[in-house]
Amino acid sequence: MKKNRTLENAIATIPSGAVVMVGGFGNPGTPFSLIDELLRQGQTDLTLIKNDANEAGHGVSRLIENGQVRKLITTHIGLNKVVIDHLNRGDIDVEFHPQGMLAEKIRTAGSGSFGFLTDIGMDSEITRPDDLLDWQGKTYKVEMALPADFALIHAAQADWLGNLVYQGSAINFSPLMAMAANHVIVETPDLGAPGRFKPEHVHTPGAFVDCVVRLESLTSDYGILEHHVRR
């Protein structure tokens, strides 16, 4: 079954109030085209789960600046002063997790499990007494799985069964989120027929993917950011 959809139809399945995972660490892996369509359609009261808030004026920062986001579940927003200002003013609820804990919570949801035990952050204010569990003579922190309604994913290449291949450091959270959301929307500039990938080279198997949007071209967001080039 072909999973090809138009950009507009794919994003129109997302209602206001949805919990939406967004792949990407910085720019690589951020599905800028899916995000910009969500900006255009204007769904509100969103909960976003993303490693970072992109940089001001780009990616999920645009959704936050446009007032469409109620809560951001993230690890680090240090490169986005605009979102830090939103946080300081109380315009948005920001929940910080250690990065590997966020990844593991998503991975756990994606494996159909409900939580895991860890010692990360036990000595810090992110751990409340209620989070602790004594088990066989040791104390652990319980981390619950983190599922979502939707995942927005950028793949370097895909086929219409939804098999995905990522590129460079754009892998990051994408394969984890593709397993953890109930409805997975993928954008790719390179969509082809099944059989194009060596089966053992597929990163995300198509069973996890609900629809694939072929991008006609990539905007400047996907290119080199001059201010990150070392001179």
Binding site: T75, H76, I77, G78, I84, F96, Q99, I120
Partner: peptide, 20 residues
């Protein structure tokens, strides 16, 4: 290195796991 309450909270990133 992750939070100056009300002023500058970049967030935890990988720091807790790396430090621990």
């Amino acid at each position: 290195n992750w939070k100056i309450p009300g002023k500058f909270s970049p967030g935890i990133g990988g720091a807790m796991e790396l430090a621990q």
